[in-house]
């Protein structure tokens, strides 16, 4: 009799997990996947537009931020522009300018880029620069909370939704 009640309790407990938490976790994870999909699409759009037009505009950045926040999460958006400096390779007539290592890049990051966008509404890129955008969520999503319930996720890289895109700028902006 005692053994049967124990089994029933275990069964109820299992049932609760299977009926409630397991589908919820699965759905929450799918929800995150969908969020990631829209984050990835928004970032790819943003980067490709910047590559085609040669500039990061305040408008384009606002659009990126609003389509990210439409997923219901908060994000950390990291921008990086690697600027090509062709001057060093000009010093000799013999180097191959397409060879890796002959050109020197220096980088500007999110705060520098955004302060320029704020100041003049755009950040001009030139042909050959490399733009990289990465976004990762800063809040905990439901799926993360549920996971934390079972096993603890901690540390800096505990984000669930991440999107990233980079590419060489094809045209000098104006």
């Amino acid at each position: 009799m005692e053994g049967e009640s124990l089994i029933t309790i275990v069964a109820i407990f299992l049932a609760a997990i299977l009926i409630g938490i397991f589908p919820m976790m699965a759905l929450a994870e799918r929800n995150d996947d969908i969020s990631e999909l829209s984050v990835q699409t928004a970032i790819a759009d943003f980067v490709n537009t910047a590559r085609k037009t040669g500039k990061i505009t305040a408008d384009g950045y606002d659009k990126l931020v609003s389509s990210l926040s439409a997923t219901g999460n908060t994000y950390d958006i990291a921008l990086e522009v690697k600027k090509i400096d062709e001057n060093p390779s000009k010093k000799t007539t013999q180097v191959d300018e397409t060879k890796i290592g002959e050109n020197i890049y220096y980088a500007e990051y999110t705060t520098q880029i955004l302060s320029e966008v704020e100041k003049s509404n755009k950040y001009i890129l030139k042909e050959g620069d490399i733009l990289t955008v990465t976004a990762s969520n800063t809040n905990s999503t439901i799926s993360q909370m549920l996971k934390n319930f079972f096993y603890n996720l901690s540390g800096q890289n505990a984000y669930r939704i991440v999107g990233s895109q980079s590419g060489v700028v094809s045209v000098t902006g104006s």
Partner: peptide
């Protein structure tokens, strides 16, 4: 050389 203000920085 290219000017760092207007050319390299575009």
């Amino acid at each position: 050389n290219a000017c760092y203000y207007c050319m390299v920085n575009a």
